[in-house]
Amino acid sequence: MDQVVGPKYGSRGGAGKAYNQSFAREVYRNVDSGEEIKMCMQCGVCAASCPLKEKMDFSPRKIFTLIRAGQREKVLSSQAIMLCTSCYSCKVRCPRKVPVVDVMHGLAHYALRQGYKPRAETALFGQKFWGNIYRLGRIDEKDVALRYFLGHGLGQGIKLMMENKNMGIGMLWYKRMKILPERPIKNVKSLRKMLDKAKAMGKGGAV
């Protein structure tokens, strides 16, 4: 093998990670809005717009560049794609109008389909959240929280409840949460039908 070494940098000792486009193509084909990431110009506005930026292992921007680089394993096993809470800050601010939220969700679903698992925490929360929606057609915050906390086991659940006590009181105080249980929305059965159908199409379900 004949090699010329650049004068400024020099080879960093052996090959770097191989770039290839096969994963990018896989994403374009199989992930909802996947093709939109082509437009990303790596400005990073999404990264800092995300309320969960501190929890994410990779920012959306980094996810996109990893996809282009072909780093399939890193992307599909990343926690970042599972964490999106659909606040839409990134999507609204993206200067290239990449629907970051949709792509992140798309990636999460694709990862699940490919057998990747979210963190237990994330999965548990998603499961309880989904259950709530399915049952009520809306979110009853205290119900979701309660189920999520207790999902950790009784002792741990009580500990978590105590830790989050002040937030709960605050939410009650500011009327962000009701004391009484939420009632199901009108015609919740029709909603369930829609959700079932979506799930059958591979577009829904708890992450």
């Binding site: 790596q42 400005c43 990073g44 506005v45 990264a47 800092a48 930026k53 501190e54 990779f58 920012s59 921007r61 980094k62």
Partner: peptide
Amino acid sequence: LEGEDTQSGERI
């Protein structure tokens, strides 16, 4: 100011 240093990946 909040942002992401896209070269290091660090938060700004």
